[in-house]
Simulated scan of single mutants.
Amino acid sequence: MAPNAERPEGTRVRVVPGGPVLVEGPVEVVMDDGSTVTSDRFLVALCACRRSRAFPFCDTSHRRRVRAGPPDDRERPAAD
Rank of each mutant, 00 (worst) to 15 (best):
V23L: 07
N4R: 13
D72K: 09
T38I: 09
P71F: 09
D59R: 08
E6M: 10
G10V: 05
A78R: 14
R63Q: 06
E28M: 10
G18F: 04
P71G: 15
H62V: 06
R64Y: 12
P56Q: 02
C49R: 01
P56A: 04
D32H: 09
L46W: 07
G19I: 03
F42K: 14
R63A: 07
P8V: 02
A48S: 15
F42M: 12
A79F: 12
E24G: 03
G19Y: 02
R64M: 11
P70H: 10
D40F: 02
E6F: 03
F55Y: 15
E24Y: 07
R65W: 10
V37D: 06
D33S: 04
P26H: 01
P77D: 07
C49H: 01
A5M: 08
V30G: 07
C58V: 01
V15A: 13
R63N: 05
T60F: 10
E24H: 05
R64P: 03
A48Y: 00
E6W: 04
T11A: 15
V37H: 05
P77E: 09
G18Y: 05
E28H: 07
R51V: 03
E6T: 09
V16K: 09
V29C: 01
N4G: 10
L22N: 05
C58T: 00
R53E: 09
R67W: 11
S61I: 01
A45K: 04
R65V: 15
R50M: 09
E9W: 02
M1K: 14
V66L: 12
V30I: 13
C49P: 00
V23F: 05
E24M: 06
V30P: 03
V37T: 11
G34F: 01
V13W: 02
P77K: 06
P3M: 12
V30R: 15
C49Q: 04
S35D: 12
F42N: 11
D80R: 10
